[in-house]
Design a protein around this nucleic acid. Structure first.
Lengths: 205, 205
DNA sequence: CTATAGCGATACGCCAACGTCTCGAAAGGC
DNA sequence: GCCTTTCGAGACGTTGGCGTATCGCTATAG
């Protein structure tokens, strides 16, 4: 018997493995269907069917569609790793390339339109999405800050610069519905951080 | 009697003023509710009620929710005008400022998340949205091309540059849920088109 | 002035998903 | 090996929106 077992906090409270398994498979099905159907088209019955689970099992763990979707998108992670070594420019290209690929095909990308729509109507979803987006942006800002220290990046508003860098990738995915080829990333970076840059003291690698 | 009166083509075929009035008020209500409820939450009954119209009047003109929404978003226009006079930089700032304001508050902006979501699931909506987005982008590209001719804009991929310019505005609205102050537009432009630019022959105004 | 067509309202049957429930089966903890 | 808990399945009544049809009313065209 697990009294108030919310299973959420990080203090590993103990959970029946059957519960853990149900949770996982249901959340995964919910994400898949969220991408396919959108928030409005998502139904608990479809989630249960896709998960190969009884409807009652879903209701045993979540009170309704909204709570389920909130939990589901909370499981989405940035999915971007900053390389440890290399020049700032090279690492930046790498990170943006990951984002472009991620944007072309990933659970996150396919759910993104549904999440954007849901965020507009539910404050909790909005908060989750904002948190995740800021996290991603901060990754780039930190990298740029490092580059500014070495002189690879000029002394400008780094937050704005980061937004300019991911902007085209986002705009094409959501507004223009054109692909952004990962191979085009170097050109994007060169355009915003001209290769012949390094104004102050230091030189690039 | 208007036989196949679709009222849509530009050849002003003739429409009973009552029909025209119904169409207008219904499309307007549909857009408002699309922004408030999203595509999934939109119902014909709610549209009729909001428009102060009988349900049958909606079904008299559209076959269902999808057709109605498609027609509704077709009425959305770019809502951006390029100033006729001034330096390219000043006109660019003006245009981006309009977009930023538009993005902060407008029918289009409030419907945007719903449209993005709907576009993911309906090819017709996708096409309409893509067309509109390209139209907007082309406005900026044309302006930049003009600037390149006068030397105000460097010789780079103008499409990409245009996307970098609107990127931050879009990213903040849809992903970060942070406002993009129209007053920040000049800084944005300066960052991507450094004031001390004009590389070849001509000078700026 | 008359015939016509579009109108608002609303009643109708239909269906899909809701959220609750009750089973017997089986996996887990001890 | 026994007791507990979760499980899948699905029956159930309820709700809300669907799309259709009917009905006087009124604005419009001729």
């Amino acid at each position: 018997m697990a009294e108030l077992a919310s299973s959420r906090p990080g203090d590993i409270p103990w959970v029946d493995p059957r519960v853990e398994r149900s949770r996982t498979v249901i959340l995964s099905a919910a994400l898949a269907l969220l991408g396919e159907m959108g928030y409005g088209g998502l139904t608990i019955e479809a989630v249960a069917a896709r998960a190969g689970v009884g409807k009652s099992t879903v209701y045993r763990h979540w009170s309704g569609k909204l709570e389920l979707v909130e939990d589901a998108i909370r499981t989405l992670k940035a999915g971007v790793t900053v390389p440890a070594a290399g020049s700032v420019r090279d690492r930046l290209v790498d990170v943006l390339r990951q984002i472009a690929q991620n944007m072309a095909a990933s659970t996150w990308s396919s759910c993104l339109p549904a999440i954007i729509d849901a965020a507009e109507r539910d404050p909790e979803v909005l908060d989750i999405q904002r948190r995740l987006s800021r996290e991603r942006r901060q990754l780039i800002v930190d990298l740029l800050a490092e580059g500014r220290a070495t002189g690879e990046v000029p002394d400008v508003d780094l937050t704005l610069l980061a937004e300019c860098l991911v902007g085209p990738i986002v705009v094409r995915r959501l507004l223009l519905h054109e692909p952004f080829a990962p191979d085009a990333v170097p050109r994007l970076v060169d355009q915003l951080l001209p290769p012949g840059e390094e104004p102050p003291g230091r030189r690039g690698p």
